[in-house]
Structures are given as C-alpha cells and as structure tokens.
Design a binder for these strands. Structure first.
Length: 321
DNA sequence: ACCTGTTTACGATCTT
DNA sequence: AAGATCGTAAACAGGT
C-alpha cells in the first residue's frame, strides 16, 4: 500500500477504486452532487497519478458512474446551465465497503427488482410479527414482575442523534485523513465507519429534497411522472431512470452477497436511513472524527489525527437470497 | 470535434 | 472452483 504524502499519493496510484474516488469527490462538495468534469477535477487535484492517461481512467470512471447503481444522475435544472448532469450518491449506497479497503467493496450496491422486493416484504412482515410478539412478551413480563425492564435498544430509536455528528464515510476526511494513521489498525477503524449506517438523507435532501418525505427517507411514492415534458421525468425534473436504474421507481437496497447473522434475525426490511444509522452505531462510534469541517479538510489539515472508531458490531441492512 | 453517458466485453484479482 | 468486483478498452448515441 502506498504511503501518502502530506496531501496526496504523489505519483503512485491511490489505493482507491474509481467508485471510492468518485464518492469522495461527490462527498466533498456541500451540495453532494457534482458534474462529471468536477469529479475529474477533484481527482486530478488530489491525486497526481490521475493527471496522466486521462483518457483511460476517465473512461473507466464514466463506466463506473453509469454501471453502478450507487451513483445517480441528477439532471441540471434550467437555471443550472452547463454540460452534462450532476452525479450524486444513492441514499442507500453507503454500506458498500468493508475490509478496510476502498479497493474492493464488500458487496455491490444494486437496486432490487420487483420480485426480490416482494420476497423482502414478506420477510419484513415476518420480522414485524416477531417484533410484535417480543414486545408483547416483554410487556407481559413487565406486568407480571411489576418492574420496569430496560427498554430494548431496538425500540428506542432516536432519530436526531446520528444526524448532527455523523459524517458520511465517503467524506474526504473520513477516508483520507484517517488513512495510515495507525498502519494495520486504521483500516479497521475506517471499516467501522464505512460499514456503519449513515444519515445519507441529509445529503440527498440537499441534492434533491423533493424526493424525500417528511421522515427524510427516499420516498418510493414520491411524485413520479408528469406528463407533457417528455414523459420520463418526475414532477421535479428528475428522470425516473436516474432515480432507479433500469427499473421502476423503487428504493434501492444494498444487496449483500450472503445474509449476515444479524440480518438473518429478520430485520430484512431496510429501516429508514436515519434509523438504520442509529441501529448501526454504538454510542462511541457516533463521533468518528475530530471536529473539523467536512469539505476541505484534506487541504487544511490532512495530517490531523482523528479519533478512531471503536469496535461495534454492524448491522447489515438487508438480507436477500 | 469534443464531451457526456451507456453498454458490452474481457481479463485480473479477490472472496467464499 | 465459482462468483463477485474491478479496471480497461471500445463502440455507439446524443448533446453542445
């Protein structure tokens, strides 16, 4: 693994996949969306390696943008003249990386097809039923014992807690600032950040607030088609295909290769991102970084040591198969 | 012409 | 070994 210089990886190839690099770029801007040219620029600015052979890697990068469901295309509004569309991260794409490596994802982010969603909804029903049963038993126990048993964390879902402190794992300071801090162990810290949930709805409400309902969750029932303007655009100028690659307008769910123990329990219904974030975090892991601004931290204090994440078991968002 | 975006194909590498 | 992921090349279409 190349050891980075103060700000960059010098001329060596950075240990990040194009997906990571693109996500970094998108995360680095306040709007959480960037046109292709700005993504190029971000990468070239920070990684000299990519100042050469631009044809090659830019082609690869474009391929990744189109091919991977974790990237969504947001068309420019009439008041945003320029070439090409904006690119953003899908609200549910955060849980892609593990192993502490940005070279390879734990699983590929993929949008579910209708049949898979149906199977999932059935699992969700079962999960809900089991949860209700557990609640009932708990209540019965409490009543019988006349005591107040501690609430199960599962039922104690604060919504606001994770929003203000948590930084998306693709935030540049989360990726680079901590990299190599403690060789061998830092990757693990980063992994914790990457595999945890995050309130991506924050950024998406910025990028396309119209697609979010009051819970801050991508709303599958959000206004879709609006006649007249060409048919394939939502009421807010977002092309349907952009929101859901190659399929109906359904929320995307990361698909693990294999169900994990936690996901097998029955939490197959993907919780809203903010709840998922809460579920995925131990209290200690909520503030993974030192207080520094999200954008621009790379330039300002790249060597600033940041707090490492504590180990916490992560909850996989969904089980399919 | 050039840029952007999509798609297909293939080989390398890694994980299970 | 099989499958998943990644990187690369290339063809093509559409827009500016």
């Amino acid at each position: 693994m190349p050891r980075p210089g103060r700000n960059t990886y010098s001329d060596q190839k950075p240990p990040y996949s194009y997906i990571s690099l693109t996500a970094m770029a998108i995360q680095s801007c306040p709007e959480k969306m960037l046109p292709l040219s700005e993504i190029y620029k971000f990468i070239m600015d920070r990684f000299p390696y990519y100042r050469e052979n631009t044809q090659r890697w830019q082609n690869s990068l474009r391929h990744n943008l189109s091919f991977n469901d974790c990237f969504i295309k947001i068309p420019r509004r009439p008041d945003q003249p320029g070439k090409g569309s904006f690119w953003a991260l899908h609200p549910s794409c955060g849980d892609m990386f593990e192993n502490g490596s940005f070279l390879r994802r734990r699983k590929r982010f993929k949008i579910l097809m209708a049949a898979e969603r149906l199977a999932q909804s059935k699992q969700a029903e079962a999960a809900h039923y089991l949860q209700q049963q557990a609640k009932l038993r708990l209540s019965a126990l409490q009543a019988a014992a006349g005591t107040h048993l501690p609430q199960m964390a599962t039922y104690n879902l604060g919504v606001s807690q994770s929003q203000s402190t948590f930084k998306h794992p693709f935030a540049i300071e989360n990726i680079i600032a901590r990299e190599y801090k403690v060789p061998g162990s830092l990757a693990f810290s980063t992994m914790q950040s990457m595999s945890a949930g995050y309130p991506l709805h924050n950024q998406l409400t910025t990028a396309w607030p119209h697609m979010y309902n009051t819970c801050g969750v991508l709303d599958p029932a959000a206004p879709i088609s609006m006649g007249g303007g060409g048919g394939e655009y939502s009421a807010y100028g977002v092309p349907i295909k952009s929101l859901c690659h190659g399929g109906p307008s359904l929320p995307a769910i990361p698909m693990p290769i294999k169900p994990t123990p936690t996901s097998m329990v029955g939490f197959s219904a993907l919780p809203p991102p903010h709840i998922h974030a809460f579920l995925s975090h131990s209290p200690q892991s909520l503030s993974p970084t030192s207080p520094q601004t999200a954008a621009g931290s790379l330039q300002s204090s790249p060597s600033t040591p940041s707090g490492s994440l504590t180990n916490s078991s992560t909850m996989q968002p969904v089980a399919v198969h």
